[in-house]
Design a protein around this nucleic acid. Structure first.
Lengths: 172, 172
DNA sequence: TATTGTTATACTCTATAACTATA
DNA sequence: TATAGTTATAGAGTATAACAATA
């Protein structure tokens, strides 16, 4: 347990507010573009894009969640929605019968392609227009470090399931 | 209209993903802390914090929205929620009878104080622990610039009301 | 006994459009 | 006629707990 300081200095506050607000504004704008161009929510786009980059366009449900969604049921919900639209398919994994492998379909890739130019345009106009190439590089370096740290940080009360062992005992 | 490039380079992609993911992880963690410590959503916290910093603890509804909420009805909803809990009060403005002035109450300030140490602790552990003071400074500078640019950028289809003039004519 | 994923359910939040009242 | 705010309503998303099936 580290001794947490009483408060933050002005620079820290500035960085925190700017981070939250910039990402919020950006995400809101991108979200709108995605809805207009392809009727996709941001989360759905993230899932499709993740699959699009994955080898074979496939990923197990559990691995897919990573950083995009914070609960299992949330992922199931989104996967179902995408499947109904024919943008992904789901099938039991061959090696582990418990897992489901999600795969992006051709139609899913088409929607991705359809949405992508506008997506890039929003990023250019909103985020990169105000930054020099060197700014972008610096930003990437610092934020990547921050993200990696957060990812491995012990989730305060997260770990949805892993932590529930006690509950079952209490019921008996 | 600028000629938007076909795609982004690897560094830009890295910066974009890191920004979205870092802010998402951070916001999720902070949101949980706020719920546990004071039964506040992140938006509610932002509104209270904004009021806490405002002169007299007051702000007009419209001015309060700024960057926190993206629709008028959304703000009304949150303001009502906070008022029911006694954390803010609302009264017609004296100078303009159309506007409502929202003011943080003593109880609102108490909740803010109750929640604040844990809030700072999360930020320290998750965001600042991985960054040097100089990183934080750099981050603040760049992201502030980005945010300010986004704020003044023409909202593609935003401006909830301002843009609706045509709709009325169509109904006639 | 732990893990993978689904379901049911309840709740929070957001957005649109129609409306009232003041400027 | 434009602005400030509310309401009704509907939809999207999220989380928790209980559940089934596999390892």
């Amino acid at each position: 347990m580290s001794s947490a300081p009483r408060s933050l200095d002005a620079v820290q506050l500035g960085a925190y507010f700017a981070l939250i607000e910039a990402s919020s504004l950006l995400r809101h704008a991108v979200d709108q573009q995605l809805h207009e161009a392809g009727d996709l929510s941001y989360v759905q786009f993230q899932l499709l894009a993740t699959l699009g980059d994955a080898p074979g366009g496939s990923r197990r449900m559990t691995d897919l969640a990573d950083g995009v969604v914070y609960s299992r049921s949330g992922l199931t919900y989104q996967a179902q929605t995408l499947e109904k639209r024919g943008l992904v398919s789901r099938a039991p994994s061959r090696d582990d019968e418990r897992s489901i492998t999600v795969t992006i379909t051709d139609e899913g890739r088409a929607v991705l392609a359809q949405v992508f130019p506008g997506h890039v345009a929003v990023l250019e106009e909103l985020l990169f227009a105000a930054l020099s190439p060197s700014d972008v590089e610096t930003l990437a370096e610092i934020l990547t470090r921050a993200r990696d740290h957060m990812r491995q940080a012990p989730p305060r009360s997260a770990a949805p399931r892993r932590r529930r062992k006690a509950a079952r005992a209490a019921r008996a």
